[in-house]
Write a protein that binds this DNA or RNA. Structure first.
Lengths: 108, 108
DNA sequence: TATCTAGGCATAGATATACGAGGTGTGGAG
DNA sequence: CTCCACACCTCGTATATCTATGCCTAGATA
């Protein structure tokens, strides 16, 4: 992670859900996509991402399915659920409020 | 804390240093001021703040001094150091980059 | 006077989250 | 054949915050 990793805490689920809201993806792809979209700032580790995906699945925010293309490399595709979209909406609001409050204090 | 407390991680030092850059303050005052400035969003606990102040002092980012006014309640005033101002400058940049990257991913 | 509330400092244990290291296996390029 | 990127996973550790608790003072209130 290029930025202080502590800054990331609390926003990773939001980031992951945001990507999955656009299209279903598999874990490795999420990492690469996130790195690309953030301009290289977020280099999420596998040891970070997979536990998050499993937690989101346990909370019924995402659903997973193994790809079954013959001969193709096995990938586990994750897609967002209705509950996931609702959670994402909340998280976006939380992020906005938080960001604005920090900006207000730090930059006046 | 009104917002997800995990979001706060990594930015509390920045918030504290920002306030101390404006004027020297004591712990309890920092909590109240931060709550006020953030519109009630940041309700930092004493158990959170004091360890942070001690850590910042150990890193020579702040300096502390007990108030010595006769009869007055004893307060420990913290003031930012030159090193603290340099650290704050870095942290502000980090915060800006992080905020922009999250926004880019989450809001497009 | 006695008690309650707010102010003021501090530490200890629990909890949450990310990382690093390690493990398994596939498939294509040199 | 070997190496590296792909692709999944778990576990121990580090870090940061919160909750709970403790101690003490000063002013308000019953």
């Amino acid at each position: 992670m290029s930025v202080d990793k502590e800054l990331l805490k609390g926003s990773t689920q939001t980031l992951v859900l945001t990507l999955l809201a656009r299209k279903e993806m598999y874990g490795y792809q999420l990492i690469k996509e996130l790195e690309l979209l953030s301009g290289g700032l977020f280099e999420l580790r596998e040891g970070t991402l997979y536990p998050i995906l499993h937690a989101l699945e346990a909370e019924r925010c995402v659903r997973s399915e193994w790809s079954s293309g013959d001969g193709a490399r096995q990938r586990k595709y994750y897609s967002i659920t209705k509950a996931g979209r609702a959670a994402l909406k909340d998280k976006k609001v939380q992020w906005s409020e938080f960001r604005s409050a920090v900006d207000k204090v730090v930059f006046g």
